[in-house]
Computed example of a mutant assay.
Amino acid sequence: MQLTSPAIAHALLALTPLEGHHPAALDGVTLMRADASLAPAPVLQEPSIVIIGQGLKRGYLGDEVFHYQPGQCLVVSVPMHFNCDTVVGDDGPMLALAVQVDMATVRELLSKMLPPRSPAPAAPSRGMAVADLDAAMTDTVQRLLQALASADETRILGPQLLRELHYRVLQGPGGDCLRALAAWHGRSGPIFRACERIRLDYAQALDIGTLAREAAMSASAFHQAFKAVTGHSPIQYLKATRLHRARELILHGSNGAAQAAYEVGYASASQFSREFKRLFGHSPADAIHHAGEHA
């Protein structure tokens, strides 16, 4: 059953007096506020639990649309590339809390939990899912936000509240994708490792044959399983990862487009520019201007 909590929205509003993404004093936690609706834009969402306090966000992955609103959360278990928009309603700004998924915590918790009653799916499951907040998880989120309002509580209670939040997600339907990808011996395990390989080594000369061999799968089986989890082919996923990393270099460093292209693994600056514009809708030179529109 979906539960909405005005207390979550009130706490988020108090913690985010200004629009934007605000890192909390607790590692892995980001507070988000948008005062106006934002059009769909490409995002690279790292493994995380995104809890909506007010407003609406939508993720677009191919023909799939993931709506998440108050009383719901988005659970992402591998880095996912998709388009995302923000809808602000009459009740005020969009408010959300994002918590980075700690896979070491997930595996440690699973080692102590009883197996789920339903069997694991035979095929790899999508690496993201929308789940309703139950009463226990709503309570955990409220106590986490309360702790973030105090430096002492953040430092002392914050880590155990993050661990509790992981446990609450694993107990509910949103935990299915975390369970599948933490089960290293299932079909999804090699795909998780392949996503991690791309996340760390995106600038290297990776190809589907290499990734398939490392996953101990045939090229065709690897391609099918990878797309089932991420919504993209391995090559599309690698290309999008490189482009997002290049955009970060341009926005947050002193890199020009040509240098950013080289650092993420492109040999051709012109090819990089074409593919960057195809993904983001603007040239690398215009990245900083357009980033302000989607902050």
Rank of each mutant, 00 (worst) to 15 (best):
C84V: 12
A14P: 11
A104M: 08
C84P: 02
M1Y: 07
I191G: 01
A39S: 13
I52K: 02
S270G: 10
Y167W: 12
S125K: 04
W184S: 14
M113Q: 14
E263M: 05
E214M: 08
P121C: 09
C84E: 15
S218F: 01
E164N: 12
H166F: 01
D152H: 07
A135R: 04
L178Q: 09
H81I: 09
E153V: 00
T138Y: 04
P121F: 06
S188C: 12
I208W: 00
Q259D: 12
A285Y: 04
T105L: 10
L178M: 11
A240P: 07
L12H: 08
I208C: 05
S37H: 01
T4V: 06
A258M: 08
A123D: 11
A261G: 00
R274K: 13
R58P: 03
A122Q: 15
G189T: 02
E46G: 13
L38V: 07
G158A: 03
M217Y: 02
A24Q: 08
A221N: 10
M103T: 11
A215Q: 01
V229Y: 02
L38N: 01
G92P: 12
A11G: 11
L110Y: 01
S270T: 15
A39P: 15
I235F: 02
A136G: 01
Y237P: 07
R274G: 04
S37C: 00
M137L: 06
F226E: 08
A228L: 09
R278L: 11
P6A: 09
L249M: 03
L206I: 07
G253I: 06
A260D: 06
P40Q: 11
A131R: 05
Y266A: 01
R242M: 00
L145C: 05
L3D: 04
S220A: 15
P115Q: 10
D152Y: 00
G231V: 05
P121D: 09
A291M: 02
G62D: 13
V88G: 12
G55Q: 02
P40E: 09
D91I: 12
E46P: 06
R117L: 14
S254C: 04
M94T: 15
H166W: 01
D139F: 06
L114R: 15
G158F: 00
P47S: 07
D90G: 07
Y202F: 12
A295M: 13
S118K: 10
A225Q: 04
L110W: 00
E64L: 11
T138S: 10
V99M: 06
V99P: 00
L13N: 14
P124V: 01
V229Q: 05
L251Q: 08
E153L: 08
R179Q: 14
Q171Y: 07
V101W: 01
I8L: 11
K239L: 10
N83S: 15
L145E: 03
H21T: 14
G281H: 03
L44T: 06
L200Y: 11
R199Q: 15
G89E: 13
I250D: 00
H81Q: 14
